[in-house]
Design a protein around this nucleic acid. Structure first.
Lengths: 204, 204
DNA sequence: CGATTCTTTGAAAACAGTCAATCTGTGTGG
DNA sequence: CCACACAGATTGACTGTTTTCAAAGAATCG
């Protein structure tokens, strides 16, 4: 069954981070709703009420904004075993600020805020895992801000390749550019200089 | 006593977010260590082991990185009732990535990771408050990233003034520039055009 | 295949950064 | 009370990077 194997990814993820009883897993599983998205399909659009947090069991999602001139700016990617969600909007009834769509065919597990709250209250391991994920997410975003402020386009590009090689390998370059905050042309030019430098010295 | 009034700020903050018994407050208070910092003094330097989370009871802190060329880049400000901390480094024994210092004379309440863990485990209201603070922090950082990617220097400047007027009013302009990711000169020029536009139409 | 989307390349323009000088305000000491 | 020093803010001229626009060349999906 497709659903079972999808949940297994989450189960695996959780087992790696805390201890759970079989009962707890059953309880957790009941709270999540599987969702299959094809490439290009949306989990959420900015302006809509945001309803769910998603665990990515397979595939890859992206979260982004569209600015006044119609340009997309990717805030984050979420491949397998990552979470993807609107920020505040889950707790409060604010309209979503972000678009979230699938950049590959993806399997998600969705959970609504109330169920999530219940899990946090009743399953200690879940609460701890969630809290740690939040802490890591916050730290990762601080690093992202710091790098955006202090590093050049080139440095950010190279760093992304090092830090997230598996993501870099599977997203189109224009999305990488969007994530880095530069134009696709600039990424193309950076790439060019990078292998010119790698090649240059050795071919002399 | 100075310590008591400092803790009252935290107590007040917590009371506004969850319910606590007197015993719980006493337990909480025992875990925090007051610290007074004069303007310019450090809570932490990059490279050191990061040890504590700080609650700002009075004054204002900043968290920043110093890049390869020696330039400072402010990741966040933390005025009264905000938390300031290294991200990951609290849980793991990684060296700190950020500098944290006082930009005004400030009163902090510090808590080490182990005590914090204890509070989260034993005081439900504290756990919930902390979790919500983390969620809000993550969301705020997503917005910061989105704006850094999608808005011009001018828009970011105006938005900061709107969103954090009280911070904008008390930090030097060079720090605002550092936070926005532009040079002090650029902020100066932006300011100029802003009141030229406000003045221009009416003085015609 | 065939159409669309993605990437590359070129040339010119816009934007912000740097450097350096001046101006402003604040606080200090004569 | 004035003079001075210091830090922050402003302004101008110049430089450099990145964007934009436009067009051609891959690559990919159906």
């Amino acid at each position: 069954m497709a659903e079972k194997s999808t949940f297994d990814v989450l189960k695996n993820y959780l087992e790696g981070r805390a201890s759970f009883t079989g009962e707890e897993f059953a309880f957790i599983q009941k709270k999540f709703i599987p969702l299959i998205l094809r490439r290009g399909e949306f989990l959420q659009r900015a302006g809509e009420p945001a309803k769910c947090t998603g665990f990515v069991a397979a595939g890859c999602m992206r979260k982004y904004v569209i600015d006044a001139t119609g340009k997309e700016h990717i805030v984050s990617f979420a491949p397998e075993t990552w979470w993807v969600a609107e920020g505040v909007s889950l707790a409060s009834p604010t309209p979503a600020q972000f678009y979230i769509d699938a950049i590959e065919d993806s399997n998600l597990l969705l959970i609504d805020p109330a169920s999530h709250e219940e899990l946090v209250e009743k399953v200690p391991g879940y609460a701890a895992t969630y809290r740690r994920a939040l802490e890591r997410a916050t730290a990762a975003r601080d690093r992202r801000v710091a790098r955006a402020l202090s590093a050049s386009a080139r440095e950010r590009y190279l760093e992304f390749l090092e830090t997230y090689p598996s993501i870099a390998a599977r997203v189109p370059q224009r999305m990488l550019a969007s994530y880095l905050g530069v134009s696709p042309e600039t990424v193309s030019r950076i790439r060019k200089t990078v292998w010119q430098e790698r090649r240059g010295p050795s071919t002399l």
